[in-house]
Amino acid sequence: MIDPNIWIAFGSWYHIILDISLLLSIYLFFKLPKEKRANSTYWLPFLILCHFVVYQNFGAYTNYNFEFKKAVNAYLGNTENPKFNLWLYNITERQILTVLYLFLIRSWLEPSMKKYINWMIYSFVVIALILQITKVELMYTEQPVIFALGANMILIACGLYFIGLITNEKYLVSNPLRLLSFWTTTFLLFNYSLTYVSSVSLLYLYRVNPVLGKSLFQIGRVMGVINISALVLLIASAFLTKLFDREPLYESGR
């Protein structure tokens, strides 16, 4: 008989949508011709989506298997709050996902702007490592500085995309409303701006006003689903040529 706790951990609307999105994107990705699968326009969103769904499910697993979560927390030195699984979200969401999103936005920029994203990625990785090695920000608890840094970098990268949109000749001849890069960047912009304050003050909110904390957390989940849908559409864009235009800076051999 299936443990009812499995359903509690993995059966929320959020996880079901994410899992369906992953299955759909796997199907779509492997339906793509080989040369398109080798192109970052398609494999990068697929990689981000896989990463996102896998760590969300892993997060659900840590809630299901408390002993495992407790052991990891103890290994990291957190014996005070064994219920926390922030260590997972700190590494996968606040650090790796930020870098992956920066790479995704970078793929839509003209070469002259790509160097700014490269520098952002280098500095983000170095600063995040220094902050964690020096224990200024612990891995198992809130990391407001690393999150703020990553979110600001994503917002700046989105800004760079919009600058390219209004200055680059190739973007100027296209209709942004038919570009998936435009929608994905817009959703990222909303995701990071709407969750910015609540993410930085997450623990405080849960302590002072748990109802509001949960409500704001739900905003993050809704934005997460919207972003995942955008990623699925990016992978499916090769089949939706009537709905969406090809990216203006698309290179077939990338």
Partner: peptide, 15 residues
């Protein structure tokens, strides 16, 4: 809490 809600709405509106 009001500051958090207001800041979130403000950032959303700004974006």
């Amino acid at each position: 809490i009001y500051i958090i809600i207001f800041s979130t709405l403000f950032l959303g509106g700004l974006m």
